[in-house]
Every structure is written in C-alpha cells, then in structure tokens.
Write a protein that binds this DNA or RNA. Structure first.
Lengths: 295, 295
DNA sequence: CAGTAATCTGAAGGAAAATTTCACCTTCCG
DNA sequence: CGGAAGGTGAAATTTTCCTTCAGATTACTG
C-alpha cells in the first residue's frame, strides 16, 4: 500500500539512516515544510536542497512513491491536513480592531451557530400546526416592523409565489385596519424578536379577537405577543455584542423558521405550488439580460 | 489569492452555471470524486469525462488555478481532508414527502453549508475595498429587486442606523433617477443573484458612468453586472432543488456579505457608529410594551 | 425558418516537468 | 597508493501539461 500523507514524517525518520547525505537533505526539507515543498517542481526542490533532480526522484522512491509527482501530491494532502487541524477556532466576539478575515469567519460561525440552535430548539409540532393552519387559510397576513419587517416581507413574498393570498404589513395602522377584516379560517403571523413590539402585537390581538388563527415568531415565548398567539414558534438568540446587536442574529433565526413554514406549506400544496413557482420564474425571464451566446 | 482546497466544492457550485456543458462534466467529476481525480493525469481526466485535455485545463483555470497541475494538488489536499474525518456531510435534497423534523434539519444544514461556503470563497480584499469606499462616501444607494430587494433594504437599514446616508431602491425608475444624481465619492451597490437582472444593472451602470464607486453582490462574478462594478463580491450558491430554488439559498449568502460590509463600516466609523446605534435603540424603546416585572 | 455570428470543442503541435541514463566523482578498503 | 563500490548530477528521453487553430455547435436576428 502506498503510504498515506500522515505516515510521511514517520517514514522520513525511519528511512533517514539508510539515506545518503544528499537524499537526507531532500527528506529533511520535505518533512520540515510540506506545504512549501508541495509548491516546488523537481527542479525547484533540487535547487532548494542544493542537489540534483535525480536525487529528488531517488528520495521519492525510497519514501515509497513511484516518483516525485506522487510524493508531491501526498505533500499537498499533508499540508491541507495540517492547515485544517490548525484551524483557528474564532469564537470570540467581534472586536473593533478585528481584521476583515476574522470578521468574515466570526460572522459566518456565529450565524451557523444560530441556525443550529434554532433548529434544535424549534418545536416541530408547533410548526406543523402552523403549516396546517396556513394551508387551509383563505388569506395570510404577516406583521413585522424594523428588521423583522424584512422577514415578514420574505414570508409574504414566498407564499405569493406558490399562489397563496399573503400580505406583509409594516404600517401598524394599515395592519390593524386589515386585521379587523380577518375571520375564522384566516391566518395572522406576527414576527417580533423582543415579543414586546406593540406595533406588531396590536394587529395580532385584533386578528385573534376576530377568530383568526394566530401565529407568533418570537425570541421570547413568554412575551406579550404569545398571549394572542395560537401557535408560538421560538427563535433562538446568539450572543450579542456591541457591533452585532441581537437584531442581527435574530434575523437569521427568523428566516430559518419562515423557510420551514414555507417548505411545509409548499409540500402540502405541491400540486398547485410547483406550477405556480415555475410560472413566477417564467414571468420574470424577460427582466433578465440575454444569456451569453453559444450555449 | 489561490483558492484553498476547502473552498473547492463551493467554487464548483458557484461557477457551475457559467460553465459550458463539457466543463460542467469535468467540474462534476472533480467535485464528486476528488480523491479519484487526484490520481488522474490531464489525459486521464479528459478520457473519464469524455472531453478533451483542453477542456480540463480550461475548467481548472475557471476554478481559479493556473492549470491542471495545481488543481490536482488542491484535489489531493481536499481528499486528504475528507479522509481525515473533516468530510462535509452531504445532505440529501428536501423531498415532497419529508416529515417536518427532516425538513427543519435539512434546511438548517443547507443554510449552514451555504454560510461556510460563502465565507470560504469571499474575496476579503474586495470586501475591504468596498468598505473603504463606503466609509468615505457621501451617500450610499443600494439596488435590489425581488428576493434581493429585501437584502438591499437590510443593508440600507443597517447603514442608516449608524448614521450613514443610505437608501434602498426597488423601483427601477426611481433607482435610475437617483443614480443620475450620483457623483465621484458616492457609492452604488447592486444586489442580484443571477447577475443579469436588468432592473438592477441599469441603475448601477448609470451610477458607474457618473463616476460613483460601484459594488456588485452577485452569484455570477462573470455576469453582466460585473462589467459596471468596481468591486465584485461573490456569493456562493447551494445545490438547488425544486422546493428550494436558488433564490432561497442566495439570500443567506447575500445577507452574510451584507453583514460583513456593515461590520466593516461600523468598525471604521466606530466613534460615530456606536452612539448612533444606541440612539436608534433608545428611540424605539417606547414602541415596546413595558418589560415584565422582576427582570 | 434560414442565415449568421458568436462561442464551444477537441486534435495536433509545442513547452515544461519528470524520469532515466550515463559518465564522473568521492570514499573507503586492501 | 590503487581499485572497486556506490553517490552524484548534467544531459537525454519520456511523460505530462499547455496552447493554438480549425471545425462543430448553438443561439440570436431578420
């Protein structure tokens, strides 16, 4: 069996005594800086070690590879392993003086964490109940302001695409005005991270009183909004820092919940959802510039 | 910067749409069996994919390597990483009959994957350049329609909160009207997954012609939108399925990029950003119901 | 629906890298 | 000090990789 990259360092030590002086120089360079050597051609490595190409090839053979080409591949593998092992687990808060690469890494990790947390904490039964209500709803109204307003729009937009009657309301006055028209069989969704946003609670309460099925997507299942919600979907919150306020991570969490609702609804209305999706795609085709030619 | 092995799978997905048929076959083989392909020579891989050596080399170039030799090295690295247990869990597509718990889990995993891919593939230098331009900008205009419209609003909203002059335009007419007013020192940002959305490209082009600094956030760095962009920030694309169209995963990716931009700007304008953030928080306090007692 | 212009594709030739060969050099024993 | 055995690298050879170019394909245009 050809030696894997892991065994390389050991192999070098084992074989070293039986090597000639110039071969040892090559082996040493290879064991000492796999990543660097992986970049070099035979000629390059020969030059770097002050030897000849023939010696490099001979050393490769001695280490168990058919030639330098394969040693080089193993070297690249080893380098990759080392790098991934030494992956700096950046879990600290984002600081004012963090360099951009760290910012990108930390943000991505934080959001991944938020997603994992949300998925783990999400009450599937509540999601299913919410989906069931939406599927048979005459219309769906979604309330959200500020950062949650965008999530609210996202949900409405998605539902519209699969042929449902959905609206997103950011204007609290209009939201209440609409909520008054709600009746049993309709669905109202309120999205608020704090669970205490009056502009969102108010229309939900009205819809609730009208007999509509109400759903709350909130980070505070004990918040006031829950009082008027038939189904509460809890979003989780990541650590917040000064530069990354809670509003930022709650958005990720809320979007995941919204996506789950959407997929659930789309699954249960697949017969109509699928054609509606393609139709909306087709309708937008002419809003795109022509594809590059010859394809 | 040459892409590391980690980013390869993401890169393949990102670039796949802009590839020709035979190049896609090569990319697919490479992404599907890195270990196996690492063993093959150009000729071998060409044969295995039923294409020519030239096509293999062309594909390697498109993926960001100087030639096949270097792609092969990266492949060896990737294979080694996967073998060592860091293998990315390949999740199945979401099916119509998936039970809700599976849907939640798959969605969360997909989005996490998208985040990791985006972070790995994001060109930090471009981000820094974009941030620098925004920091010193007189005003920032953001263009986005459809699903990208929400991301566009998110960016504008965030920038407003730290005291910058930012606007999001979804109406293409108003967007162009505003773009005409742009001048050197202003910044225009276009957000489009396809890179071909005319309603977004048009205002960006106008702003570009006016001498403004232009930024594109797109999944297609070779798309038309890139022609008028000083800085291109590439979002990566997850596998898409019928129930989860590309538009859905692109949102996650775009939001991460937007967050990076925001944090970058906030860092560099910390003196004014921090007070502005707390001020906007304070101003909204009375829109919340009183906190529950004893907390 | 045909013309046309652009792009895609692979075969063949040219460049580069890897491997082998071979003559020279060192070293060590007799 | 002579000679043999192995170490070493320059040059030749082979393999691999890359570039060029002409034909095939495709998608737009009138």
């Amino acid at each position: 069996m050809r030696p894997g990259p892991t065994a390389l360092a050991a192999k070098v030590r084992t074989m070293a005594p039986s090597m000639t002086r110039s071969m040892q120089r090559v082996a040493e360079a290879v064991a000492g800086d796999p990543a660097g050597c992986a970049q070099l051609t035979v000629t390059g490595l020969a030059e770097r070690t002050g030897t000849s190409e023939a010696t490099v090839v001979r050393t490769s053979r001695l280490l168990g590879y058919p030639g330098y080409r394969d040693l080089r591949l193993a070297l690249a593998g080893l380098a990759a392993q080392q790098e991934s092992g030494a992956a700096p687990a950046v879990t600290a808060d984002i600081a004012v003086d963090d360099p951009m690469p760290d910012v990108v890494a930390k943000l991505a990790l934080d959001e991944q964490q938020t997603l994992a947390d949300t998925a783990a904490a999400l009450d599937v039964a509540q999601v299913e109940a919410a989906v069931a209500a939406m599927v048979s709803a005459r219309r769906v109204d979604v309330y959200g302001v500020g950062a949650s307003g965008l999530v609210s729009q996202d949900l409405a937009q998605k539902l519209l695409r699969i042929g449902m009657v959905a609206h997103s309301h950011a204007d609290p006055h209009l939201a209440v005005t609409n909520a008054v028209q709600m009746q049993a069989g309709d669905v109202a969704v309120a999205i608020t991270h704090s669970g205490r946003t009056v502009d969102v609670i108010e229309p939900l309460r009205v819809a609730f009183d009208q007999g509509a099925t109400t759903i709350a997507i909130t980070g505070r299942p004990d918040g006031e909004v829950a009082q008027y919600a038939d189904h509460v979907l809890t979003t989780s919150t990541a650590r917040e820092s000064e530069l990354r306020p809670a509003a930022m991570s709650s958005r990720t969490s809320q979007l995941l919940v919204v996506d789950c609702l959407f997929i659930g609804v789309a699954q249960r209305t697949y017969e109509t959802a699928a054609p509606a999706l393609s139709a909306s795609y087709e309708a937008l085709a002419h809003r795109h510039s022509p594809r590059p030619r010859g394809r």
